[in-house]
Design a protein around this nucleic acid. Sequence first.
RNA 1: GCAGGCGUGGCGAAAUUGGCAGACGCACUAGACUUAGGAUCUAGCGGAGCAAUCCAUGGGGGUUCAAGUCCCUUCGCCUGCACCA
Length: 942
Amino acid sequence: MYNTKEIEEKWIKYWEENQTFKTNLRDFEKPKYYALDMFPYPSGVGLHAGHPEGYTATDIVCRMKRMQGFNVLHPMGFDSFGLPAEQYAIKTGNHPGKFTEENIKTFTDQLKMLGLSYDWDLCISTSDSSYYKWTQWIFKNLYEDGLAKLVEMPVNWCEELGTVLANDEVIDGKSERGGFPVIRKNMKQWVIDIPKYAEKLLNGLEEIDWPESTKEIQRNWIGKSIGASVDFKIEGSSKTFTVFTTRCDTLFGATYCVLSPEHKLVDEITSEEQKEKVQEYKKICASKSELERTSINKEKTGVFTGAFAINPANNKSIPIWISDYVLASYGTGAIMAVPAHDERDYEFAKKFDLEIIPVIEQITGEKRENETSKKSIVAVLYDETKDKYLTLNWGNLGGRLFIGGTIEEGETEEECAIREIGEETGYTDIELITKILPINHHYYAYNKNQAYEIESTGFLFKLKSSKSIDNNLDKEEQNKFKLEWVDKKAIEKEVKDELHFTTFNNVLNPGAYTGNGKMINSEFLNGITNKQEAINKMLTYLEEHKIGKKQVNYKIREWIFARQRYWGEPIPIVHFEDGEMCALKDEDLPLVLPELEDYSPNKDGSSPLNKATSWVNINYNNRPGKLETSTMPGSAGSSWYFLRYIDPHNDKCLADKELLKHWMPVDLYVGGPEHAVGHLLYSRMWNHYLYDKGFVPTEEPFKKLVHQGMILGSNGIKMGKRYPEYSVNPNDIVNKYGADTLRFYEMFMGPLEADKPWNNDGVEGSKKFLDRVWRLYTEEEKISEEENKNLEKIYHQTVKKVTEDYESLNFNTAISAMMIFINAVYKENVFPLKYAENFIKLLNPIAPFITEELWQFLGHDKTISYEAWPTYDKEKIQDDLINVAVQVNGKLRGTMEVPVNTSNEELLRLAKELENVNKHLIDKEIIKEIVVPNKIVNIVIK
RNA sequence: GCAGGCGUGGCGAAAUUGGCAGACGCACUAGACUUAGGAUCUAGCGGAGCAAUCCAUGGGGGUUCAAGUCCCUUCGCCUGCACCA
């Protein structure tokens, strides 16, 4: 209909020549608004269909805010260090910088083509030495504050990529990029001590407006747990080791200890005869890749060291094992094992036949006053041939139960169970299958008028043959119940007794009991039923005896900060010949990457920078040394770029403090959810650090965060190499339909946060609507100085809805409101000029090109970008007449149009007059009448 | 396995505090204008039924005058974590 190409080129040129979107950063008069997009990695293929979505979303908000009088900061830049450019350089021998520069040019043109209102003067690239000077400067500060360190530690090594990777770059034991296997290897590495900031990063989440799911991911990643450290002595040695536990209340149940295979003490304590086995096991573990270690976690493995530890609670001697189910990197790399109350320990103990001591009893029934204590058993007898269980049907004396009885003097639980089975059922050819942990049961015997507390042990026996003896129980007792074999379903339905039912469940799924209960076998803790009370009491005991203390532990590990690659920020550190090192002085930054003949990695896995001998070997402070040759990871430059936009050309500091104070924090940050634990956590950490140093004004950098969803192919599957025929290139869409249509369509597809499949018919529809708007203004000749009362209400409603929806990023419903408005205008003959002008303003943030053109068409000669945003009149939105629904018994029987705020009585009267309502009321008794003013009437009849 | 999210027409989706389910758009159907229409306009469009009416928000149950919305339970899909002591 209209020539999109011509119009769009015209306005791109206009905005550029007039510097329409230049931000005066020092204008502190207007309120500020800082909207940020996650800057892209400038790959060779240019923008994909997903980019415009998030970028349009922030652009809409920015354009509205400008019109509302805000001073808006809306910058764009490039995360330009990274692997593809390096691989290109290896292949072609060209410098990756040139390649990167070309890609940035392509990206910039594409972004401009989309009509995004960035201030391009603020554009930054992380690979620009004037930018990475400050990345290096921050690193230097971290180093001097002891937060960046060179440490020997097990790291994720990827042979294929020839580099170390951070934890968030390893997915299921494979590299995030390329999917190559990753193994654990001890290496000297630069790390950043992000665990030092664990608590601050955790607390900071409380005050920011982020998606709850992302906060939860970060909380999980940080993984705080509160527990205790407990020291264990090694028998016959002066050595000790410490374990971390969240359940120190179960210490009396610790029947063995496990060290991780990498634990320092393993070699020292291993006995002569176990040495060979231990060495072999260690070797197997070391050679396992991360993938094998996690995926083969079904079956527990481990080896006894031959050494014993002393349980500090009861001085019992307990064996020390090693196993890879204990991780070297978490806690102290050693645990106390309480098989009765930890699933993993239970599994391990069962496999290696280690002792299991219960210290917590599951409680069933309700505790009463003056209980009498006794010990008893519950036995479940199973007949495999019939797949049925033996029950005693007591009728109204107690319903369906299993075999139960009280333990007699001098009898073990097992003996009691066998005796009771014999006495009550006569079966003798039975085999013990399972014995479960004791249950603490409370009940009241009405016939004896007595409350009981029993310690009940449950058993599962298998019937080997139906051989039975005539039992010697007296007939009177036996007549009270009937023996019945029933199936599982019947038991689940009919066994009501809590003890018997719980026993049944537990014997079928035997395992550790991890719930709350009553402490037993634990001396000074015995009888306690409150978990926290037991933990506190044990903590006091540990501290009094100086064998342990309260301890907080975090899952988050050090951020591995070095890559053996070329295309990254050089780490500004000099290693002197005597092993000392120092950071470069401020005036020696930036440390610029040298050019190389050959960018391929060295065979020994060392950084390509090693080849630049004249660069590496330097004399610093009159001492000969070598520059560090590892470079920083991709996440370095992106961890602070949002600060640099505020003052991108400053060569005195990372950004002017006064400007930072005015502009931080970022008001709206839009980007994909895939950065939840990488970039978004690292950025927060750097910002917290810079805040602590007094360089930035806020602890948290991103006040509000929103994740845009993925744009899927029309087949509903992620666009990409797999289904190129379903992929969409934004260039093609812009060429065919124009950038306005692309922006409009992507905003209309659905909620910003949702994943949405592409549908080309939808694009056509969006174009049709813009054409319809164009025709309304240029052909219909309805625009007039006259008023039109018919449009008043809908106009004000539209202004309200669009303004609110833009603010809350509900662009799809804002668009729907504008469509409703345009449909209404088409039905009228007069389109008042004021409405026509203001509608153009409402549409401008989504479709900037067509609206600039129509604004000009209406006789204006300047950009629309700074025209005042329309306001609405609340009074005019209110209807005089409204529709009220009338229901009979909750079913819609009619609607009526009544004046607003009609009284309840009147509403009811009118409702009953409605023909269709009346029909349903005839001969019926009204039992209730509900009236919700201005909404609904519901008449309930019988 | 644990945590979080989602499930509404043929499709993308709407639906303040529980208050007329399906707004808006696509596709589809019929009609108008046209030499023509993949343009435009008008009307229809969850299912069943001539209709009154009934049935419908993954399934089952509950709370309520009233449930897409709240509670319990179950199934399916997606995402994150995955031996975290």
